[in-house]
Nucleic acid binder design. Structure first.
Lengths: 160, 160
DNA sequence: ACAATATGGTTGACAGGTCAACTATATTTT
DNA sequence: AAAATATAGTTGACCTGTCAACCATATTGT
């Protein structure tokens, strides 16, 4: 019950502990490490690659820019990631006939297989994470994330 | 109420959207960018440097290893960060008399001044973030973070 | 049709994080 | 006291994320 604030030593109640940004950073680092490990063991994919493939799975044939917008990824990073995926033979691209700047991306057979190898493990992990919370709690948690993200988006925008 | 899942376009309900890890990553990136901007404008500090100084402020004279443990920082990164802080004249270190491996760290006058320049702005930002939630909500949010962190710590530890 | 502008994507530079090897000093074991 | 082990901190390698410059193609305005 009280375990939030009752650790006695200087061990667990330093000021950063209550800072949103810091807490998120730490949690996120741990979750990432976990995901990276699972992906490595099951499919050899990196976390970025995985996320890109999830998008590919969702949208079917799509383009780099579309993905970048959707998941708010840096397009440079994405470009490199896609090249790796193509070199590994997991994704293939064909130049669009309507607009020759665009590259239409899709899974190769190998890509799909690799994706499916990782997927159940990633699902299980996701479930395990969320299972630590009640429905109600989960809902509130995501709502809080939503709110925080809005505040972050709004306040002091880079240039105006 | 329903705003979690009812966004209609393909714009806002892709599958990653519900994934804890991804959501945290994105939120965290935004919060970091915000903090980095504020620090740059007010004090020229980096986020890492800021966090180290917060620790210094909290513990008074302390050592690198203590800080590293406290905030779960990589000691290598910390070493470099401390060197930058020392080069900039914000922190000074003296070798411990009891154990000559240890370097006791503390603020210089300039360091303290720089820290105090950033502090009110960082406080204000923190307040602004938390003000988007009710007390109850805040409490639950941190509880959820706590829980998730526990799950992340426990499950599938790196080596055993 | 031509110039200006917008868009899709690539590339280079750089800060930050993570890991592992390494040096130097302390501590423990025998 | 010597050998083995642990701890404090430094350094190098590598990888990811972010930013800005850049090229090529499309689109728009005149």
């Amino acid at each position: 019950m009280l375990d939030l604030m009752t650790e006695n030593a200087g061990n667990n109640n330093h000021p950063l502990r209550e800072m949103v940004s810091y807490r998120l950073a730490r949690l996120q680092a741990k979750l990432n490490a976990q995901a990276i490990r699972i992906l490595k063991q099951t499919s050899g994919l990196s976390l970025t690659e995985w996320r890109v493939l999830v998008m590919l799975e969702t949208f079917g044939q799509t383009t780099s820019t579309k993905i970048a917008k959707e998941i708010e990824f840096d397009k440079g990073q994405l470009s490199r990631c896609l090249r790796r995926l193509q070199n590994a033979g997991l994704v293939k691209s064909t130049i669009s006939e309507e607009d020759s700047r665009r590259q239409l991306l899709e899974f190769t057979v190998l890509g799909r297989e690799t994706f499916e190898k990782a997927r159940p493990h990633m699902r299980a992990r996701q479930k395990q994470l969320l299972d630590c919370m009640e429905m109600e709690e989960k809902h509130m948690f995501f709502r809080s994330l939503e709110k925080l993200e809005q505040v972050a988006d709004k306040s002091e925008p880079p240039n105006e």
